[in-house]
Design a protein around this nucleic acid. Structure first.
Lengths: 343, 343
DNA sequence: GTTTACAATGTAAACGGTTACATTTTAGCA
DNA sequence: TGCTAAAATGTAACCGTTTACATTGTAAAC
């Protein structure tokens, strides 16, 4: 079982095919200056010997690894898999590989991971709530092409791809307003989380655009988890002047809100309408199904790889501040059905 | 922006530190035969120059890449991210990297992906419903250490790590039986899917152990998706002799069953109890919350990496048929609360 | 039948590390 | 102080490619 079959090298192939290594190399790099017959002979010999070019030697010589490093934060669930799925699809098509590193819950971890990967990859795709300017201009990161996923701090120095959070939030708000709601609460995200901040900004913007004052008591804190949504639900129900609608900054919190409302016997959407953001899979399956904002997450991954490969092919380090914004789409479901009183 | 700062090499460090490359190399490989002072000097110079050893050169010379290839099937959601998270945690600790490739929906894709990675990795972690013996004994796969995730076909030839599906299913059944249920239906998984088959086997085994005949009409097909569970729910309700409990082979189908039952006004668990398998995150959040079987998925990833690293360190290709079985734990929730009639 | 131009192939020097082996330094001891 | 063994460091070959440049082959033009 542990027979050490020495890997066959390009020299072996060359010898058996009666040509020089250069010619073999040319064949495998699709050079057009090898005569057809020679090429076929070489390919056949190589196939017979089960020859696979040594990637390390190739990288060393060419100074490219054909690998992309993906550094992802400590996120769970669908987001993670969808991003990788999207990224892998494109990378694979372009014969690139994905070196992934998960779970960076703080800046230090992110930095060491980046350093460890540096040298094994041609470029980085970076996603982290902890990205700040200092980190980004660090020597090793500034000398490698990098695309940043949704971090405004980096937008001026690096290419970035983001979700249109503000527009998404405004869509939710417009929808709720169009249903006649005027007392609309929001469950915020973590302090400092950019997606959360942008969604809150959208909330404010749309209220303002409709001449409605935002009430402080309608803005409650959450941390993107279901329990924090549950807690927010309690806070809102205890107000003497309850809201008629709640916009949670993500679906998990919205589900938490729904859970609390159900426990208290508050009917959704008749007494209170609820909407979320992200459109995770469950949102369409629960009861009442949840109105949310859909974003094509796998596209986030694909686009990131596409942009990165573009840099790599043009030889640039990184285009400064080039941005792509992914559209957000409202998906209306039961949790915000028109109120009966309005029908 | 695109200044091509040539990477600093070991030679440059050696020159500046006034030593030979061998000494520098030794320092970075923690050889103990470098005198402390020299080592410090070298480290300081290296740090100043921002020296990072070239991974390709290193791999070429050492014949190891310090990278593990992970080939995952076309799966969505939590499973995917949890496996990677678990694998990455261990890999990172041991200074290994993870080269991942997602979405292999058929055998051919799996094979090309494996081939492409071969040579860039020291070993493979393979998970695919399409794994068969021929694929596994293929030249390139048989010459690289490989750990297989949950595929019985491979169990004799390769190390494998699997979920204790049979036991999990039996636990669900024992639980339902202990509640007094005798008419228990099962929603199967895809034909040919091993997890599904094993869960079905557990269903049968536990019935048999209790002297209950399995009724064909209580065994309905599904394909692990929510809609297929919904459809199965319909089939079961249309039986003249309805079951009093339904065991769905995974949570998504169980959720589909619940959706149909709610639509038809059938109360859960009072009229029909429902249980799933996998304990995905939503299962605890929906209403009624779903009784399910919990498996520590990230552990599946960690264990796979651990075993693989073990081979790598011992120099073996693969241990034949060494198996690890992950325990499954029953989590009882509202969907199978004791029936009122029994209280 | 040369000469010429270009197409096809070959030669050998990188690429940046590791490490067996050679050499020098150091320390211990008579 | 000189001798020796062991410790510290240096030298250079090697890992398996790519590719600039050199060489050879071929066909057309004279």
């Amino acid at each position: 079982m542990s027979k050490q079959k020495a890997r066959v090298t390009i020299h072996e192939v060359a010898r058996r095919a009666g040509v020089s290594v250069a010619t073999v190399s040319r064949v495998f790099n699709n050079s057009d200056l090898v005569v057809k017959q020679t090429g076929e002979k070489i390919r056949s010999v190589a196939h017979q010997l089960n020859y696979i070019p040594n990637a390390s030697a190739r990288s060393l010589s060419m100074k490219r690894t054909e690998t992309i490093g993906m550094l992802l934060p400590d996120m769970h669930g669908e987001f993670f898999s969808e991003i990788i799925r999207g990224a892998d699809a494109i990378a694979h098509k372009e014969r690139y590989h994905l070196l992934v590193s998960a779970s960076h819950s703080n800046k230090e971890e992110l930095e060491t991971a980046t350093k460890m990967m540096s040298g094994r990859v041609d470029g980085f795709i970076l996603m982290s709530p902890h990205l700040d300017s200092e980190t980004l201009v660090a020597e090793y990161l500034n000398s490698i092409p990098t695309v940043v996923l949704s971090s405004s701090k980096a937008r001026r120095t690096h290419d970035s791809i983001r979700i249109d959070n503000v527009d998404g939030a405004r869509q939710v708000m417009r929808h709720l307003l169009s249903l006649g709601h005027r007392r609309i609460a929001i469950v915020k995200g973590d302090r400092g989380n950019e997606d959360g901040e942008e969604r809150l900004a959208g909330y404010h913007a749309e209220l303002r655009a409709n001449g409605i004052d935002a009430k402080d008591e309608f803005i409650v804190a959450g941390d993107f988890t279901e329990p924090s949504g549950y807690a927010a639900g309690r806070v809102l129900l205890e107000l003497k002047n309850r809201p008629t609608a709640v916009f949670a900054s993500n679906d998990e919190m919205a589900i938490g809100v729904l859970r609390y409302l159900r426990e208290r016997g508050v009917s959704v959407p008749d007494e209170i309408a609820v909407a979320g953001f992200d459109d995770i899979q469950i949102s369409s399956l629960i009861h009442p199904s949840l109105t949310s904002i859909h974003v094509n997450i796998s596209e986030l991954g694909s686009l990131a790889v596409e942009r990165l490969l573009l840099f790599l092919s043009t030889g640039k380090r990184h285009a400064s501040g080039n941005r792509v914004v992914l559209p957000a789409t409202l998906v209306v479901r039961e949790s915000t059905a028109p109120r009966k009183s309005l029908l």
